[in-house]
């Protein structure tokens, strides 16, 4: 057998092993579920029938209300992401221009990130009401700090080599900012943006679950509080699907080849 085909066989063997293990874990999960359902005697209020959940899931895929909720959630998500990212870029860019500013702003950003923003949510509701704006405010404030921190690090960390090249070739201040510093900082800034994306998704859903009038998180809360267990599970599946697609998009748009910190 030739060398490459042996290698391929070994790789395949490893993949098969891994997939068998995954499958086993999945089967175990369903087995526990099935057991709780049948011999375990758990109430359908706690553990719904697998078939019911699946039925509900399929129905959701044709349900207008779910698409409305999805639309609301996505709108909140995109708006907060845009506001957070833009303001973070501006702040980071401004702060990165002098040493003093950077040193003063950086701890503020770290502190802003350390604070559990969720505690402010009841106040935000009080100020902005239960509509979309409170979700956007909360998600924006959560995402702003890690994005800004990473961007600041990125702009500060630009290799001085590039800067001196720019200087040597007589780049103007504006050219220096855009052609040199900005370009060089893109990878790490992208890392910050990626973190921001993940964070907005998380925070928007949490906010919707805590108090809202629409959105996927709201639907989940609504069904679970009306003890419609099969539907709650099904909406969780819907959200997982959305999350999966969202992460796929992120990994396509913001490839993970650079380290960021959060």
């Amino acid at each position: 057998m030739s060398a490459t085909s042996t290698q391929a066989v070994r790789g395949t063997a490893r993949r098969i092993k891994a997939n068998v293990l995954r499958l086993a874990a999945l089967i175990a999960l369903f087995a526990v579920w099935g057991y709780a359902q049948g011999p375990g005697g758990a109430s359908t209020l706690i553990v719904p029938k697998i078939g019911d959940v699946f039925d509900e899931f399929l129905q959701f895929l044709e349900n207008r209300a779910v698409y409305d909720a999805l639309w609301v959630t996505l709108t909140e998500l995109v708006i907060s992401l845009v506001i957070a990212a833009l303001s973070a870029f501006v702040v980071a860019f401004w702060a990165a221009r002098t040493d003093l500013r950077a040193k003063v702003i950086e701890p503020l950003l770290v502190w802003g990130y350390l604070v559990p923003h969720i505690l402010f949510y009841p106040l935000i509701i009080l100020w902005l009401g239960v509509g979309m704006s409170s979700k956007i405010a909360y998600a924006t404030s959560s995402a702003f700090f890690p994005i800004a921190f990473n961007c600041l690090r990125a702009f500060r960390g630009v290799d001085p080599k590039y800067v001196s090249v720019g200087r040597a070739y007589g780049a103007s201040k504006r050219q220096m900012d855009w052609q040199i510093k900005f370009r060089a900082a893109v990878p790490m800034a992208a890392a910050g943006l990626r973190i921001g994306c993940a964070l907005t998704l998380v925070t928007v859903l949490v906010a919707e679950m805590l108090s809202a009038t629409n959105g996927l998180g709201y639907l989940l809360k609504f069904y679970s509080q009306s003890f419609n267990t099969a539907r709650s599970y099904a909406i969780i599946l819907v959200i997982l699907l959305v999350v999966g697609i969202f992460h796929l998009l992120i990994s396509k748009l913001l490839p993970k080849n650079m380290e960021g910190q959060a």
Binding site: L201, V202, L205, M209, G217, S224, S232, I236, I239, L240
Partner: peptide
């Protein structure tokens, strides 16, 4: 890690 954990609170 990328999943909002809060969706599991009902469970």
């Amino acid at each position: 890690i990328g999943i909002p954990k809060s969706i599991f609170i009902p469970i």
